[in-house]
Amino acid sequence: MLSRVADSIYWLGRYVERAENYARFIDVNLNLLLDLPPGLNEQWEPLVTVTGDKDWYTSKYNNFSRDNVVFFMTFDEENPNSIISSISRARENARIIRENLARESWEKLNELYYIVKNAKKKKVWLKNDPRVFFEQIKYGIQLIYGIADNSVSRTEGWYFSQIGQFLERADKTSRILDVKYHILLPSLEEVGSTLDFLHWAALLKSVGGFNTYRRFYGGIEPAGVLEFLALDQYFPRSILFCLRQAEKGLHCVSGSQESGYSNVAEKKLGALRSELEFADVNDVMDFGLHEFMDSIQIKINNISDEIHNRFFKITDNFTGIQSLQE
């Protein structure tokens, strides 16, 4: 497979997953809102904080109102990570490598692009309940995954897209957990209160894991949710699960054994995976929830760079310039 094509497939996987997760981020809050006791303000600032784009946000917007934040995260084309930007970049990559995609995959992604464009025109973020729109995004992307799952051959291209998708998801689940760190409770006494419970439940609902969690962990409590979303071996959005999938993909692409490593990317990914594999909730808490998630995000970035160096890097014959996506 051409390096450039592999590069595009990888980033196609990442951008699609990013768009879905942004829809989920916003869903956390919209879910919370429904149950919020009177007198408490909506908290939109944490969402911006966990995306890592806060400095940029504050230079452009003067408050953290719901309209502003939802617009920033969804429709702001100057924000390279907004849903509209992610979908456009996914589509751009798909367009570049269309000859490698199933026809339906391309068509569904293309449709999604027009759905987002039209929603922007209709200013859906000003609607009272924009959740219908975010559901449309989530299901639209699930459909794309479903089509791929049943039509793409399990060869190199599939694994590059899996690596992209799962690294992105690991990163975003760590950020969803981080939301909880940043959402403030009105007072310390509220820890363990109904409100606290609502926060954790909203996290679970946003990743579609509320019922699964209940079945396997029972009561909603911080340690349980943390374990479920970060360290669970079976839940497909937990960080550990995602890292394992990505690692599996990487080994398939390199044609190497599943143990050990044959390149730097595999080495770093394997190290991160085992770090989580052998950690328990207390280790995470001791390290600090926010700090732990932060270090995971940094390591994922490094892994992504190494994948680039190993598989995608080509230098322009004339300018010596390498193209890089992020």
């Binding site: 051409l2 390096s3 450039r4 094509v5 490598i97 269309r98 000859e99 490698n100 080509i314 230098t315 322009d316 014959n317 004339f318």
Partner: peptide, 14 residues
Amino acid sequence: AQQMGVELVTGPDL
């Protein structure tokens, strides 16, 4: 390229 099942290449790929 898709219909023929061959690679689509650009200058920097070569």
